[in-house]
Amino acid sequence: MYESIKQPKIPPPFWFIACAALVYATPAIIPFTAPLWIIAPFILSACGIAAISLWQFHVVKTTVHPLQLEKTSVLVTNGIYRISRNPMYLSLLLLLISWCLYLGSLGGLLGVILFVFIINELHIKPEEKVLTEYFGNQYREYQRKVRRWV
């Protein structure tokens, strides 16, 4: 069923780490200092979103592994998935933004933009094709109601 859909071969945490390294290596074009009270909410939100979204997959006993799309057994649309179709990726994005703020580099936002592009193209779009093939109109209706990121 899924053979016709090109599935990703590199997991999202790799792209997160690569983009975080890019953020670190990017010169501070406009340096600034972000206080902890600005950074902390991004980190706490990222951790909370990740924990809740992983827990929801655990409860319904479906895979969270983005490289094994064929093991998807349940379409999760409740809880945090009523706000974002991809809260796990959103949590990584928030951590990457936190990293930019911590380093105080607006130039590092290039790494954030690259991360969003890579995740959209290499992970989210193939996942959407698999979920549409597997769940059909149920998934299309979910797509219509809930945005990809937020």
Rank of each mutant, 00 (worst) to 15 (best):
I10M: 01
M1E: 12
A28L: 10
L67A: 03
L69I: 02
V130C: 08
H58L: 11
G79I: 03
G108L: 11
Q138I: 04
P31C: 08
L103E: 10
I10D: 07
F14Y: 15
P35F: 13
L75V: 02
A40R: 12
N86A: 02
A21P: 00
G104T: 08
A25K: 05
R85Q: 13
F115N: 06
V112M: 08
T132Y: 06
T26L: 14
Y134P: 00
S105L: 00
I49A: 02
L122G: 02
A18N: 02
G48L: 13
N86Y: 02
P41H: 06
L67D: 10
S45I: 09
S98W: 02
T132S: 15
I97V: 14
E70L: 07
H65Y: 14
P12C: 09
W15Q: 01
Y81V: 04
H123N: 13
Q143L: 04
E127V: 03
P66W: 00
G108R: 00
S91L: 08
P35M: 14
Q56P: 04
A50M: 14
L109E: 00
P11R: 04
S4C: 04
H58Q: 14
Y134M: 14
S98N: 06
R144L: 15
G111W: 06
T77H: 08
T72H: 08
I80M: 08
I97Y: 05
W15L: 08
E121M: 10
L114P: 03
P66Y: 10
L44F: 15
I124W: 05
P8A: 05
V112L: 08
R148E: 01
I80F: 14
L122Q: 14
S4M: 11
H123T: 01
A25D: 10
P12L: 04
P27M: 07
Y89T: 01
R147Y: 09
Y2T: 00
K125D: 00
F16H: 07
I113H: 05
P35L: 12
W15S: 07
Q56R: 13
A50S: 14
L54P: 00
A46E: 02
G104N: 11
Y81E: 04
S98V: 00
K6R: 11
I52S: 10
V76E: 05
P8F: 03
S105W: 10
E3M: 11
W15D: 00
H65T: 14
L131C: 00
A28I: 04
F135D: 10
T26M: 15
W149Q: 08
I119L: 09
P27Y: 11
L94W: 07
L101I: 01
N120D: 15
V64G: 14
G104Y: 08
K6D: 07
P41W: 14
V64F: 13
Q68G: 01
R140N: 11
H123E: 11
I10E: 09
P126T: 06
R85D: 09
R82P: 06
T33P: 00
L95I: 03
L103V: 03
T26R: 05
L106P: 01
V112Y: 02
Y142A: 04
L106H: 07
P87G: 08
Y102A: 12
P66S: 08
V60S: 01
L92N: 13
